[in-house]
């Protein structure tokens, strides 16, 4: 049974993203002001919570070859509705916190129906739900800002559970937990296996008797659920939620996924990569401000990192394809 197990070779390409993260960290540790400190590390973590949740969810969708543009506004909409339940409807905080991911799940499910059953291109379908969820959040909140419990309020346990406790960035535990769960789903379950199968060849999966449509709905719903969960952490981080915001955040999450090596054409990707991609973006954000460059510089450089990551990915795919020999299947046909 020895060759059944078969030794797995280390794929050095996979180490590229972690190496980039380490190099970035060392670079800013040397050149940045107040970067190499507990405080600096804490800030890196804190700015990656809600982006991380969205990124984990959308990784599933991107592996199927799709996209979800609605996660940013769905996150906001979920957070707004949660805040509404807590501050206007008088729900206890814990109950409101259950509602938040359910809102996300709902929007994800709608995306799934639009993409899988009604055959809309994912870009268009989720562009639509992006606008709908943004508008919906504003409508139900009556365009009022919602507040989550702050320090000193009776429900201040909320922040110490989800954000920071005794100067410990506890949100990080949730984030790591979420990624662990996502990686488990992706690598160990039928859900994950079909995710890759659909992404690499949807038609082959269908002809193999896989109910592709249903799985795609489940995958989109999962993405929505993660976006909803991101809403909790957004609430914990900012405590004030202003209606009409949220679009643009999905692109940060997608950028994290791409930097982490998940291919936009589907069929390949890892949760670990996405986590590292998100951390790279957070490190860049903190690092650039520590060398005195403002937010607009961060945006500027993040763009380069995204493009660089995809170029690298393409180069790697080309190298892999070069080995193949194309048989002239059509050549002899008449």
């Amino acid at each position: 049974m020895q060759n059944l197990v078969g030794k797995k070779k280390i794929d050095y390409q996979k180490l590229l993203a972690p190496a980039a993260l380490v190099i970035l960290y060392i670079f800013f540790a040397i050149f940045g002001k107040n970067f190499f400190s507990y405080e600096g590390l804490k800030q890196i973590f804190q700015s990656s919570y809600y982006i991380g949740f969205m990124a984990a969810g959308v990784t599933f969708v991107i592996i199927t070859g799709g996209i979800d543009l609605s996660i940013g506004t769905v996150m906001m909409c979920s957070a707004l509705i949660g805040g509404l339940a807590f501050s206007n409807w008088g729900w206890p905080v814990w109950l409101a916190l259950f509602l938040v991911p359910l809102v996300g799940l709902f929007f994800g499910f709608v995306n799934g129906i639009l993409v899988a059953k009604l055959k809309l291109p994912p870009f268009i379908a989720t562009l639509g739900t992006m606008l709908v969820s943004q508008g919906f959040g504003s409508i139900v909140s009556g365009v009022r800002t919602m507040y989550y419990p702050t320090v000193g309020s009776p429900d201040q346990w909320f922040r110490s559970v989800f954000y920071i406790h005794n100067n410990l960035p506890v949100g990080m535990l949730w984030l790591f937990g979420a990624f662990f769960l996502a990686a488990f789903l992706l690598n160990k379950t039928r859900f994950g296996r079909y995710n890759f199968a659909i992404g690499s060849n949807e038609e082959a999966a269908r002809l193999s008797g896989v109910k592709v449509d249903n799985w795609k709905i489940a995958i989109h719903a999962m993405c929505g659920l993660f976006a909803g969960l991101a809403g909790i952490f957004y609430g914990a981080a900012y405590t004030t939620i202003t209606p009409g915001k949220g679009n643009g955040e999905e692109l940060n999450a997608i950028a994290g996924v791409v930097i982490g090596g998940t291919s936009m054409s589907g069929g390949s990707g890892t949760m670990a990569g996405t986590l590292i991609g998100v951390l790279i973006m957070a490190t860049l954000k903190k690092g650039l401000s520590s060398v005195g460059l403002q937010a607009h510089w961060q945006t500027f450089f993040t763009g380069f990192v995204v493009i660089g990551a995809v170029l690298l990915d393409n180069a790697r795919n080309r190298a892999a394809n070069r080995v193949r020999i194309e048989a002239p299947a059509a050549a002899a046909k008449s």
Partner: peptide
């Protein structure tokens, strides 16, 4: 390749 296999798997 189109209808039978998931090539990258």
């Amino acid at each position: 390749k189109r209808y039978g296999l998931c090539l990258p798997l």
